[in-house]
Amino acid sequence: MIDKIVKSMADAFAGVKDGSVVLVSGFGNAGIPVELIDGLIEQGARDLTVVSNNAGSGRTDLARLLGTGRVRKLVCSYPRTSGSVVFEEMYSAGKLELELVPQGTLSERMRAAAAGIGGFYTPTAAGTKLAEGKETREIDGREYVLEKPLKGDLALVKAERADRWGNLTYRLAARNFGPTMAAAADIAVVQAREIVELGAIEPELVVTPGIFVDRVVHVPNPKQAGAP
């Protein structure tokens, strides 16, 4: 029997190694898997590369993870937001390496990893500072930048509903990076507010097919990132 539901956070993060690349879903405070981030902190892996659109605000969730000093590198499109105090402290102290990536390129690099694509050319960032040192190519008279896939060892994804096969739905715009990150990581760990019987999610309404999901933790009352 296929059963991806795990009993505890410890089970969800079993075997996660130091040096992992961790994809963390969310945009602003929507879709941040707060409880999974706390679970990863509890598990204790170090020397992590974290890939996420923002860098957290206040001192909880993503900001708390950065504050532990266990993140060596952040791959991010918009780390500097109102309240991103921990990121700013760690960055200005030279304790955090930053790779700044345009948001669509960030997402497409993960999709490429999920799809087995070795790289792609995009006009985004052509001729800018963020293309410095990258291979470029003129295609039909326009300049394109070569971008490489971005694969995760681990993805942390916040979903709304899940079944034991790992089929997922999401809540409103908390979907954001979740589906792409689940597909782009070796181990996709999902927190779901509701666990439902197999078949309870209409097949044509499944957003992330279970094939992309490895472990599901039931978190019935998830905290909203940024909430006091």
Partner: peptide
Amino acid sequence: EKMPPAVGGAMDLAAG
């Protein structure tokens, strides 16, 4: 250089 950079979707929108 003293300010940590942020780009978001600006380059994607401008180019796309």
